[in-house]
């Protein structure tokens, strides 16, 4: 699209949208202004991806929330965690049983002195911490005891401890904000049924 036609198209957007764009990103090229303007003008799309809060801290889009923590590691923490991740080839398949985790990652930062843990999960983060404390306490404590000051998953202070290190995302996008892990599992089961029905039919 030429600069001229981008400008013409930009002029067709609602005045409020144009003003918002011009105020916030006046230094951007008109092509970007047009893209941002079009996005803001698409109310259905923006409503579906509306970013709300995941309880105490963190962003949420639809049903899916984000959690990022950067925690200080004990001196041998990274080495111990690496050993563990190596045994399982970095494969955390068992985490599927939690039922709310879309993904998670463990990254060592700053010369193995810090752990970045980031995850996308369904709902708000604290309702199920208590369940971790009685259902999978060994696993939680095995991983996080390598963190300096970890109070233990069963400690009443554990939620405050996590919040202390949590850094909320400033922007958050989820392609299917209303598709929880449970809903995705249900759709997969439905699709399998439909596929085998089609296979049998022919």
């Amino acid at each position: 699209m030429s600069e001229q036609s981008a400008l013409e198209k930009f002029q067709t957007l609602p005045a409020a949208v144009r003003e918002k764009v011009e105020t916030a990103i006046s230094d951007a090229k008109i092509e970007l202004k047009l893209r941002v303007g079009l996005m803001l003008a698409d109310q259905k799309e923006t409503a579906e991806h509306k970013v709300t809060t995941a309880g105490r801290v963190g962003a949420k889009s639809g049903e899916v929330s984000e959690l990022t923590v950067i925690m200080p590691l004990k001196s041998d923490g990274a080495a111990r965690l690496r050993k563990f991740f190596k045994v399982i080839d970095g494969n955390l398949a068992g985490a599927g049983q939690v039922g709310t985790l879309h993904n998670m990652r463990f990254v060592f930062l700053e010369n193995d002195t810090k752990l970045l843990f980031a995850t996308a999960y369904d709902g708000e983060w604290d309702p199920y911490i208590d369940d971790f404390a009685t259902k999978i306490p060994e696993f939680m404590d095995y991983l996080f005891r390598n963190v300096e000051g970890w109070p233990g998953i069963a400690s009443p202070d554990v939620k405050d401890f996590i919040v202390k290190y949590q850094i909320p995302a400033e922007a958050w996008f989820v392609s299917h904000p209303n598709l929880t892990v449970a809903e995705a599992n249900r759709l997969k089961r439905q699709d399998e049924t439909v596929q085998s029905f089609l296979a049998d039919l022919n």
Binding site: V98, G99, T100, D122, D131, T134, A182
Partner: peptide, 10 residues
């Protein structure tokens, strides 16, 4: 059988 890891006893 619940879809989310939950301890029904708590």
């Amino acid at each position: 059988k619940l879809e989310v890891l939950t301890d029904v006893n708590i």
